[in-house]
Structure formats: C-alpha cells, structure tokens
Amino acid sequence: MIKVENLFYSYTKDSKYAVDDVNFEVAKGEAFGFLGPSGAGKSTTQGILTGLLPMQDGLAEVAGYNMKNPSRKMFNKLGVSFEQSNVYGKLTALENLEFYRKLFDVETIEPNVLLEIVGLSHVANKKASTFSKGMKHRLTFARSMLNKPELWFLDEPTTGLDPAIANQIKDVIKEKSKEGSTIFLTTHNMFIADELCDRVGFIIDGVLKLIDSPRNLKLKYGQKLVDIEYKDGNEIKKDSFSLIKEEERLKLNHIINNYEIELMHTKEATLEEIFIKVTGRGLV
C-alpha cells in the first residue's frame, strides 16, 4: 500500500533535510508504526504521503498512486486523523461529519454510527467550538473513518485522551486492523506502538534507523530477566536473574524448588528503552 524510496525533503530547499534518504514499504493489511521524538521527520513523511506536502526528491507511492502527481481518486481510499484537530467550530459534531462525507465519491459510514463509536453521540448536536481538546480529537478520529479507508493515517491517535477513551480508540484501531485496513501510525508513544503495530520504524533527525517487529526488537536488544520475591524464613528477599546465563538459571531453579515464592515476573526491555539504545536519543 505504501512504497518509499530515497525520499528527501527540505523545508529550506537546501541540504538541511527533515527527511533524509528514507526507504520503507508497508504491505496491505499491515499496521506500521513510524516512531520518533518531535522534529524527527514523522509528520513531514506523513505530509508527503497524504499529499499535504509536495514531493521533492525520491519516490513515494500510496495506494498505487505516485505522489508526484496524486489523483483525486486516491483520497477515496485514505483516512487521516491529525494530532492537531481541525474541525469546524461553528458546525455541530454531526454537521462536521455530514459535510465531510459529501467530499467522497464512495460509500460512507453513517455519522451517527461513528459518533457512537467514539463516545460523542450525546453531543452530536452541539457545536464543536464548545468541545474540549480531547472531544475535538475524537471527532477528528471519527471523521477519518467516514469513507471506510483502505489506508488509514493516524497521527498520535490517543493524545490528550483519558485512559478509558484511549482504550476505546485503541480497540477501534485493532478491530479495523483485523478487518484488513492498512494503518500508518506516527507516534512518540512506544507503548501504543507496541500494542498496535506489526512492525515499527525508528526515525531520528530525518534518518530511518531500523525497521522490525516489536517482538524481534525485544529479542534482539532486550534483556531476558526474571524478578523474584521469596520467603527465606521470616525474611522476604528480592532478586533478579538472567535467563541467558546458565549459572543464574540454576540459582533461580534452586530458589523455586526450595523457597516459598511470593512474586515472580519476567522483565523485558520496552520499545522506548530499545529506541534509546539504538538511536542514542530519548523521545522528548
């Protein structure tokens, strides 16, 4: 669904690149995470792929269309949910969706259904100008689903949402992914990416450092540890053992066989820890 080769982009039209020789592909039905801190090149890449920014150098194909000359028909296949909500404040939630559905040449989902999905049905007839930042974000998210997109661009989809609503949004994304939608997720939230994405790419200073599945990254860069708490007489002891080293595995087995275990859990590296290890940079 997406093919990018030797993509460059400079806002200053010189050698200071916001996107610097980026290459990747996203297969149909795949959930792909584009991860990095603010200013890394995530939004610039998404802007090029959605037609908001003009092509400069390189190749970008989206849903079978060359982004050097994008066709209007392409936008019938795309859904875009921006981090910065851009709804019409003078229109109600329902009117916003009714307006946007008229822009498509394909079958759309009933606006009331979408408002129910994102938990805004109770304010369907209220003007968007009265909404909180989180409510506007949900309305933008609902709008991105209007045309049943084959390719869904999501920019920080859970930003500014309370945990319950964020979980609801994540469930919607998971369901659409199961139904076969291709998802391009830009975020600096590694926990969201770990939960939702089949593969992730780490980008920093416009350079795409690596691409792999969250599982493979954890196996390659993470430590395999077990944290354990156990009773030794009347004393509670805590320890941590590596599952890689034979000597420590034997110690762990000894404790399990000879002491009363209070707590035990495996410990793996998070995507954020791996990102820092790979790039040498944090996510802020």
Results as ranks from 00 to 15, higher is better:
residue 7 L to C: 02
residue 263 L to N: 13
residue 149 P to C: 01
residue 216 N to K: 07
residue 163 P to L: 09
residue 49 L to A: 00
residue 122 H to M: 12
residue 247 E to W: 11
residue 183 I to D: 02
residue 89 G to D: 13
residue 107 E to G: 01
residue 135 M to Y: 07
residue 26 V to G: 05
residue 85 S to L: 07
residue 246 E to C: 02
residue 176 K to I: 00
residue 144 S to G: 01
residue 160 G to D: 12
residue 48 I to Q: 03
residue 75 F to E: 03
residue 247 E to N: 10
residue 197 C to Q: 08
residue 108 T to D: 02
residue 248 E to C: 10
residue 226 V to I: 15
residue 2 I to M: 02
residue 130 T to G: 10
residue 265 H to N: 12
residue 170 K to C: 11
residue 65 Y to P: 01
residue 125 N to L: 13
residue 203 I to P: 03
residue 77 K to V: 09
residue 255 I to N: 04
residue 222 G to S: 07
residue 121 S to M: 02
residue 47 G to D: 04
residue 278 V to N: 07
residue 209 K to S: 12
residue 222 G to A: 12
residue 146 L to V: 06
residue 206 G to V: 12
residue 77 K to D: 03
residue 177 S to W: 15
residue 83 E to K: 01
residue 245 K to E: 01
residue 119 G to C: 14
residue 23 N to C: 11
residue 148 K to V: 05
residue 215 R to N: 07
residue 38 S to N: 15
residue 209 K to I: 05
residue 148 K to N: 11
residue 219 L to P: 00
residue 180 G to E: 07
residue 210 L to T: 03
residue 106 V to W: 00
residue 259 Y to P: 10
residue 230 Y to I: 14
residue 110 E to M: 04
residue 82 F to D: 09
residue 77 K to N: 06
residue 51 G to F: 07
residue 266 T to V: 11
residue 132 S to M: 06
residue 102 K to M: 14
residue 15 S to K: 15
residue 33 G to R: 04
residue 140 T to E: 13
residue 89 G to N: 13
residue 104 F to W: 01
residue 117 I to E: 13
residue 24 F to A: 12
residue 94 L to G: 08
residue 217 L to V: 09
residue 263 L to Q: 12
residue 54 P to M: 09
residue 245 K to L: 13
residue 163 P to K: 08
residue 125 N to S: 14
residue 32 F to H: 09
residue 15 S to V: 04
residue 52 L to I: 13
residue 231 K to H: 04
residue 111 P to Y: 06
residue 27 A to H: 05
residue 21 D to W: 06
residue 116 E to N: 14
residue 221 Y to Q: 06
residue 169 I to L: 14
residue 53 L to A: 00
residue 251 K to Y: 07
residue 222 G to V: 07
residue 189 N to Q: 04
residue 134 G to Q: 01
residue 38 S to W: 11
residue 33 G to E: 03
residue 227 D to M: 15
residue 112 N to L: 13
residue 11 Y to L: 02
residue 18 A to S: 12
residue 218 K to E: 06
residue 23 N to Q: 15
residue 173 I to S: 03
residue 150 E to R: 03
